[in-house]
Design a protein around this nucleic acid. Structure first.
Lengths: 144, 144
DNA sequence: AACAAAATAGTAGTAATTCCTATATAGTAA
DNA sequence: TTACTATATAGGAATTACTACTATTTTGTT
């Protein structure tokens, strides 16, 4: 994730006020290498700002998502945020629904097709692999 | 989505019983070109099977996801199902969170890296593009 | 036709997320 | 600095999505 100064600029550009809550949520998310849920981030931020409310954390994260300072991953019950702006890709087990990051340089420079680039402002392109993880595969085999 | 006979075979292979509810959910999902939520599918199926319960629809869709007869898309609050097994890719607007399908032949034969293929049984590989759709872009510009 | 395992209907329950409103704060301009 | 206005926050209530539970029904098989 980018540094705080970039964050300040982004906020000013979007007309968002810089508040201690936003700064702390931003720093917390930036320090995560996993895909924390809102609740997980809330608990961590609460250690620094004990009075912060769950709603504020949730609203702030959604705001970050809107302005492209964070991304939502998942597709499951719990919304998870990805503050890792370093290029990486996702594998998702369709059974246990865990999402695992992986890096693969060849995937990092995928060219978006012309017609899409004209219709949308593209912020991010990732490869999304779905299948069965080893644990779920073994469970499947045992059932037979 | 594949035809009913393929569905029957898949069920037998996995030891799942073939019920009118499962058949109807399958047919309904197959007829959708969008990404319906559980609730949307429930409402449609209810027209044919008025007594079906929400729980059954939800459970059935999750079962389909488990056996690879459908996929979950989204990563937002509401779980959405994709019954379109034809090769296609997704664009997601980070702001309004709509997911739009697009086809691009060059994306259809992405090779999964060696180490991943060894760790997981890969069922599907798609390109996931995130950014801002035209509507949201225009709203953003108006705010300034 | 009878049986056992699996699936369903109809809630009730749980957990995640958003909404509401009074209060507090950030950024701006005098 | 001070005052002002728009925005943001805290706290809790409300809403929504999803899952769990149990009695009953059904499937696939003897």
């Amino acid at each position: 994730m980018a540094d705080l100064e970039t964050f300040y600029n982004l906020c000013m550009q979007k007309g968002l006020k810089i508040t201690p809550q936003r700064i702390e949520v931003y720093k917390t998310l930036a320090a995560c290498s996993d895909h924390p849920s809102v609740d997980a981030i809330y608990k961590r931020v609460k250690k620094v700002l004990p009075n912060i409310s769950f709603d504020t954390v949730n609203r702030t994260l959604n705001t970050f998502n809107d302005i492209g300072a964070a991304f939502v991953v998942g597709g499951d019950n719990v919304k998870r945020f990805d503050g890792n702006l370093e290029k990486h890709h996702h594998f998702k087990c369709v059974k246990c629904r865990n999402i695992i990051d992986f890096k693969h340089n060849e995937f990092d420079n995928v060219k978006v097709p012309e017609h899409l680039g004209q219709m949308f402002k593209v912020l991010k392109t990732t490869i999304f692999v779905e299948g069965l993880c080893r644990t779920c595969l073994e469970k499947d085999n045992k059932l037979k």
